[in-house]
């Protein structure tokens, strides 16, 4: 390929270790490599007078001098080129972002869910497989530069919408990651809010039952949750159930540290042998106390940054984001499910 800038002879030598039908020895190889090498560790400061860059390069080539000697001309050239590249790409990135945001808006309007579960069901109808556990990352914003969903209210609003979409798509488990963990302080309120939103989607009769919980706490499903209610027409047993799990930064590294502390103090009391610690044990502890491995992680941010998401759980999770997207919207959710449906899972193969 032209882009690598090596000749056929060199390529063959690299690949097969053969030049003109002769096997290369270690010395031969070093000889061939010489012109490509950077200068020796303490770079000799060559005080070349200011020639024209072209001639300088030519002289370099003929003498096979080390290449990365940063003469002023070269440095100047690099800076100029850097500025040019930065400016060009910056313009490109900005245009691309505007275009993407525009197209997301248009598509979002065209394929809106209209607060109707049937539309969402229709959207996921053609998806081959649905995740059993979906996870989303929400951000606590101080200012509302976009759609007026800042602060706690914005978070609750986002959580309610996502919960409704998840329930409509028929996914039983939703975990909501928010770095600060502020939602964990308002579990009953959140439960009420999600319940209300589910009602607005499904109506009182068909509303799925709901449990909201956070790690290390008792799950919150208030009395009168219809799962325990006697059925009126026998149909309510078939009502789907949605579990919402609230995660925060604390459930990531800090929890792994907690586990290590516990194991260490157990080992000090000789309750456990360090040799007994293995992947299965840690996995069992973490999935019981924190969360199981989500099948799909949806990011609503502009790029993939995990921001302290529990590391252990992310092993094979499909991570979805729409580049340059801003804020929670249905388009991201729908596309995430669509992409997940197509993904093939090959562990190590």
């Amino acid at each position: 390929m032209a882009s690598t800038g090596i000749t056929t002879r060199e390529e063959l030598a690299f690949r097969k270790g053969v030049v003109n039908g002769k096997q290369l020895t270690a010395q031969d190889r070093e000889q061939m490599l010489k012109p490509f090498l950077p200068p020796p560790p303490p770079p000799p400061l060559e005080t070349t007078s200011l020639k024209s860059p072209k001639r300088q390069i030519l002289s370099q080539r003929t003498t096979a001098a080390p290449k990365l000697n940063l003469t002023p001309v070269r440095t100047f050239l690099h800076i100029i080129l850097h500025v040019i590249i930065s400016v060009l790409f910056s313009i490109f990135f900005r245009f691309r972002r505007s275009w993407r945001l525009f197209s997301y808006k248009v598509r979002g309007v065209l394929r809106h869910h209209h607060h109707t579960p049937e539309w969402i069901v229709n959207d996921v109808k053609n998806v081959e497989q649905l995740p059993k556990h979906i996870s989303v990352v929400l951000e606590h914003r101080d200012d509302d530069e976009d759609q007026g969903n800042a602060g706690l209210e914005g978070l609750v609003q986002d959580a309610c919408e996502i919960a409704a979409w998840t329930a409509s798509a028929g996914i039983p488990l939703l975990s909501i990651y928010e770095r600060t963990g502020v939602l964990k302080n308002y579990v009953p309120q959140l439960h009420a809010a999600i319940q209300k939103n589910l009602e607005s989607y499904f109506g009182t009769r068909r509303r799925p039952t709901l449990t909201v919980k956070a790690p290390h706490t008792i799950s919150y499903s208030p009395p009168g949750t219809p799962s325990s209610e006697p059925t009126e027409n026998g149909a309510s047993t078939s009502r789907p159930h949605l579990t919402v799990l609230l995660l925060s930064e604390h459930d990531g590294r800090a929890t792994l540290v907690d586990l290590t502390v516990t194991l260490a103090s157990m080992a000090q009391k000789s309750d456990i042998d360090p040799k007994q610690i293995d992947i299965a044990l840690i996995n069992a502890e973490l999935s019981d106390y924190v969360s199981s491995e989500p099948d799909l992680l949806v990011l609503f941010g502009p790029r993939v940054q995990l921001m302290g998401y529990p590391p252990w759980q992310l092993r094979l999770t499909e991570i979805f984001h729409l580049p340059d997207n801003k804020g929670v919207n249905y388009l991201v959710f729908r596309k995430a499910l669509g992409t997940f449906g197509k993904a093939e899972f090959r562990v190590g193969k």
Binding site: L256, L259, T260, L263, A264, A267, P274, K275, I277, D278, I279, I282, N283, P311, W312, R315
Partner: peptide, 12 residues
């Protein structure tokens, strides 16, 4: 996961 487990084990 193997790395994390080994790290926990050696810490313990």
């Amino acid at each position: 996961r193997d790395e994390i487990t080994t790290a926990i084990k050696s810490t313990v």
